Simulated assay, not measured.
Amino acid sequence: MISEKWAVAALRVFLVVLFGVLVVFQTLSLPGGIAYHTQQNPHDANLRWPLTAIAVFLVLCVQAVLVATWKLLTLVKKDRIFTSASLKWVDVIVWAVAAAWLVFAGLLVFVGINADDPGMPMVLFLVTVGITVIGLLMVVMRALLRQATTLRSDLEGVI
Rank of each mutant, 00 (worst) to 15 (best):
P42A: 00
V21F: 14
M122L: 11
P118Y: 01
L47E: 03
L137I: 08
W70I: 12
E156H: 13
L66M: 07
P50H: 00
L22G: 09
I134F: 11
K77L: 15
V56Y: 00
A96Y: 01
V76I: 13
G130E: 01
V16P: 14
V127P: 09
F19C: 06
N46K: 12
S86C: 13
W70A: 14
V158D: 10
A99N: 01
I159K: 13
Q147E: 11
V133P: 12
V23M: 12
G32L: 12
A64P: 11
L144W: 10
R146E: 07
V23R: 04
A53T: 11
H43D: 12
W95T: 06
Q39D: 06
G20H: 07
A96K: 02
D154K: 13
S29E: 10
V56D: 00
F104P: 03
D44A: 13
L136A: 10
P42V: 04
M120P: 03
A105R: 02
L51V: 08
F82V: 07
D117E: 09
G32H: 06
L108C: 10
Y36C: 08
N114A: 14
T149I: 08
D117L: 12
W89A: 06
D154V: 14
A99M: 09
A85H: 10
F14P: 07
L15S: 14
V76L: 15
V133Y: 02
L47Q: 04
Q147V: 09
L66I: 15
W70E: 09
A98D: 03
L136K: 07
E4C: 15
K88P: 03
L11C: 15
M138T: 13
V139N: 03
L75D: 02
T128H: 01
L15C: 15
L58Y: 01
M138P: 02
K88E: 13
A7Q: 09
M120L: 10
